[in-house]
Every structure is written in structure tokens, then in C-alpha cells.
Amino acid sequence: MEVVDPQQLGMFTEGELMSVGMDTFIHRIDSTEVIYQPRRKRAKLIGKYLMGDLLGEGSYGKVKEVLDSETLCRRAVKILKKKKLRRIPNGEANVKKEIQLLRRLRHKNVIQLVDVLYNEEKQKMYMVMEYCVCGMQEMLDSVPEKRFPVCQAHGYFCQLIDGLEYLHSQGIVHKDIKPGNLLLTTGGTLKISDLGVAEALHPFAADDTCRTSQGSPAFQPPEIANGLDTFSGFKVDIWSAGVTLYNITTGLYPFEGDNIYKLFENIGKGSYAIPGDCGPPLSDLLKGMLEYEPAKRFSIRQIRQHSWFRKKHPPAEAPVPIPPSPDTKDRWRSMTVVPYLEDLHGADEDEDLFDIEDDIIYTQDFTVPGQVPEEEASHNGQRRGLPKAVCMNGTEAAQLSTKSRAEGRAPNPARKACSASSKIRRLSACKQQ
């Protein structure tokens, strides 16, 4: 084909351009004929944790799935940006308080904090938690009735009371019990989460009196709706648990309003109706937990002794299953770290194939690490110290990083047969305790 000078094309009309061969290198194709290559998922490591896909996002930050490269346990990490926390009232204080509380709590029905990582340079905090497959609110939203069968609701409620009793025994008032803060594992274990607005009572406090509340409006008791200066913290949790039980068994809320002012007005009056299909035992329990006067409201001991709580409820309806993943529609909620794991395991070791967030990740503290002497050669063979940054567990980050890069360049065919977990650990520049 004859090559045409581009400067001469402006002298031709459209018809003349076609005659000189423009149609031979300008093609129009339908979008259905285009085959897009999927974007390669680059592996990203935060300390010893391999990052997966997004699980959810809230006002405080994002939650992603991660894999512990040492234990191969599935975890969830809450990623918090200090810049964003400053824009939220009491944001930083709530996060630090939640970390302090979770560090000393150990119960099967309370979410466990596994690790805390802090990135000084990017001003990011990573709260590594045990993995929960789904939230209770997500399960309720997945069915038209917006409720659980009585047998399933009873099982979840009993676990909620177990976890709540443990928190109260530790002198902690949750203040925000609701389905949105109750998570579930694949085995059906309920976990109380989000202790950001919780309050730890003084060890020598005479009672459970509280003065502040930041919980969700629909789950607040009349004493808070009416603006009382002080109130019983434990009875606030009992009320919120009662509203939660009402919601998961009926699909409704005892109090509603077009806006928060109308909602608080209705809560302050204390008038509500219980659907007739709840039955006398459940209705009596709800009335005891939603008692207007805090002094007359049920205690956890009274809830445990109630006939509806103690009764064994046979399954009359099919239980609400864990819904498919909202993004991938995966009904099994498979591990989202698998594509990243395959990338590390299947590809040659190259620095361009993975990302390490930083050479140094500070753990379990908000301060910069200490310094240790770096050896410097002298005339008599002895070495003197220069400062060298280290990880919180004493690992020399720069030395590990250099060693990792040197190993990656060394030709050794046997290394390709290593397991995925050992490869992740070798790529991680800074081991965590």
C-alpha cells in the first residue's frame, strides 16, 4: 500500500481520502468484538498479612480480608486513616479506646483483636480482627420478611446475652447493641463488635452510672431520649438488646419516626405494640426488656430465667442462610486472597510482582521504634555504632529488605517449588510478632 504524507491529507475531501486508502487503516468495530484482558491483581503485604478484597466500608474506614502468612488464618483488617478520623467527632479517641478494650477481652461471643499495625509515614492504622463471614443486618436484609425464624432468632439472642453478660462482668457498657454490630462466623457463632462508643466503668465505681451516649437513635432507651444527665449503663444495653430481639423476630421496630426528633419523642413516651403472632412468652420477655422505668427493666439474670429464653424451640421454618457475597455473588464466600496468593505462588519472584506497604510497620504502639547501633568497621576489626531503624520486634528492616532482594536475584530452581506461605513470609520485609 502506498504511504501517504499526513501533511497532504488536509487537502483532500472525505471521498478523496477514502480513495487514497484511509479506509485501510481506520476501522470501526462493535464493542462486543473487544476482548478485555482482566487487570492483574497485584499482591500487597502489610507486615506478614497478605491483603485481599474489600469486605465493607463504614464511617471510620474500610475493612478488607487478609491472610496471615505465618498461621494461614483468615483475618479481617480495619484500615483507618488518621486524616479521616480527625474529621469525625471523637474519632481518634474512640478508636484508641476500642483498641484498649479489645486487647483485654477474651470471649467467644466478643470479636477478638489479633494485631494492631501502624504506618507512621502514611498515617494509617490497621486493626487486624478475627474473620466473620457476614453481619446479622446483612442476613436480615437478604430476606423479604426482614426477620429470622424463632428457632434461629433464639439461638442468636442467647449468644448475644452470653457476650453481653461477659462485657458487663468486665465493667464495660457497649451502648450500641444492634444487628449491624453483631457479626457471624461460618459456624454460626455470634460476635459482638464495634466497641468504639463503649465505656469502661471505673474499677471502684459504686454502680453503672453513665453520662454520655453515642449509640444508634432507634435503639436508645427513654432515659436517653428524654435527655437525662445520668442513667444506668447496663440497663441501656438491656433495652438495646430488647429492641434487637423485637427486630429479628418481627422484622419491625418498636419505635419509629420520620426524623430523629419524632423518633425520640415516640421513644420518650414509651408506647409501642407487640405483634400478636409473637406469642405470650416472647411478648412477656419483650415487655420486661423494654420496660420504661430502668429500675423495673429486666436484668440479665431475669432474662436467663425467663421461660422463652430457657425453652427449646424446634425449627418450624427453614433458617435464613448466609447470603452470597454482594460484589462477586459467591454463595460460598470464598477467600478473596486466592488470586493474590496464586500471583505470588505461580509467578517468578520479581520485585515488580508484589507490593510491600512499607519497609517498617510499627505494631502494638503509636510511637516510632527505637534505634540500635549499626556496626561500623574500624582499624582493629571492631565496629562502632551508628543508628539503624528496627521493627518493634527488633528485626532490622533494611537488612531483611536487602537480603530479600538478593535472594530474589539468585538463580535457584529449587526455590520455585516452595509453598505459597513460605514465599509470602520471604517477601515480607518486616516480620511481626
Rank of each mutant, 00 (worst) to 15 (best):
E2K: 08
P6W: 02
P6F: 04
Q7W: 07
Q8K: 04
G10W: 10
M11K: 10
T13L: 05
T13W: 01
E16C: 11
L17Y: 14
T24A: 10
H27G: 13
H27P: 10
V34I: 07
V34S: 09
I35M: 05
Q37I: 15
K41S: 12
A43T: 12
L45C: 06
G52F: 15
L54A: 05
G56S: 04
E57A: 07
S59L: 14
K62I: 10
V63E: 01
V63W: 01
V66E: 01
V66I: 02
D68R: 06
D68Q: 05
S69L: 09
T71P: 02
T71V: 06
R74T: 00
V77P: 02
V77T: 14
K78T: 01
I79P: 01
K84S: 15
I88V: 04
P89S: 04
A93S: 05
N94L: 05
N94W: 01
V95H: 15
K96Y: 09
E98G: 02
L105C: 13
H107F: 01
N109V: 01
V110G: 01
V110I: 03
I111Q: 15
Q112F: 07
L113I: 01
V114D: 08
V116C: 02
L117F: 04
L117W: 09
Y118S: 06
N119S: 03
N119A: 12
E121V: 11
K122Q: 01
Q123C: 10
E130T: 10
C134P: 15
G135I: 15
G135A: 14
Q137A: 06
E138A: 07
M139P: 01
L140R: 02
S142K: 13
V143D: 12
K146V: 01
F148T: 00
P149S: 06
P149C: 05
H154A: 12
Y156L: 10
Y156V: 06
C158M: 00
C158A: 11
Q159K: 03
D162W: 15
L164G: 00
E165W: 02
Y166F: 06
Y166K: 14
H168D: 01
S169V: 02
Q170F: 04
I172N: 01
K175F: 06
K175V: 02
I177M: 03
N181Q: 03
N181E: 00
L182S: 03
L183R: 01
T185S: 05
T185G: 02
K191D: 00
S193M: 01
S193T: 09
D194V: 00
D194H: 00
A198P: 05
E199V: 12
L201M: 05
L201E: 02
H202M: 08
P203A: 05
A206R: 15
A206W: 01
D208A: 08
D208T: 06
R211V: 10
S216W: 00
A218R: 05
A218L: 05
A218K: 09
Q220E: 02
P222E: 01
P222I: 07
P222A: 04
A225L: 13
N226V: 04
D229L: 06
S232Q: 06
G233R: 01
F234C: 06
F234G: 10
K235S: 15
V236F: 08
W239L: 01
T244R: 00
L245F: 00
N247A: 11
T250R: 03
T250A: 06
G251E: 02
Y253S: 02
P254G: 01
Y261I: 15
K262A: 09
F264A: 08
I267N: 06
K269Q: 12
G270N: 11
G270T: 07
Y272I: 07
I274L: 06
I274D: 05
P275V: 03
G276V: 06
D277V: 09
C278S: 08
C278R: 13
C278Q: 03
G279L: 11
L282P: 02
L282T: 02
L285G: 00
M289G: 00
L290A: 01
E291I: 08
Y292C: 02
R297S: 00
I300F: 08
Q302K: 03
H306V: 02
S307V: 10
W308L: 00
F309I: 11
R310D: 14
R310T: 05
P315M: 14
E317H: 09
E317Q: 08
A318M: 03
P321S: 11
P323H: 11
S325A: 06
S325I: 14
P326E: 14
T328P: 14
T328N: 02
W332P: 15
V338G: 08
V338W: 03
P339W: 15
L341N: 13
E342F: 07
H345F: 11
G346N: 14
A347M: 13
D348M: 05
E349L: 12
D350Q: 12
D352R: 15
L353Y: 11
F354W: 01
I356L: 08
E357Q: 07
I360Y: 13
I360S: 07
Y362A: 11
T363G: 14
T363C: 10
D365M: 14
D365R: 15
F366V: 11
V368T: 14
P369L: 07
P369R: 12
G370A: 08
G370D: 09
G370P: 14
E374R: 15
E375V: 09
E376I: 13
S378C: 11
S378V: 06
S378F: 11
N380M: 13
N380A: 13
G381Y: 11
G381H: 14
Q382I: 10
R383T: 14
G385W: 09
L386T: 14
L386S: 12
L386F: 03
P387K: 06
P387V: 07
K388S: 08
V390A: 13
N393M: 12
G394K: 14
T395G: 12
T395D: 14
E396T: 07
E396L: 07
Q399H: 07
L400G: 12
S401E: 09
S401R: 07
A406H: 14
E407W: 01
G408Y: 12
P411L: 08
N412A: 13
N412F: 09
N412R: 14
A414D: 05
A417C: 09
C418A: 15
C418D: 14
K423G: 14
R426H: 15
L427A: 14
S428W: 15
S428T: 14
A429P: 03
A429T: 05
K431S: 15
Q432Y: 15
Q432L: 13
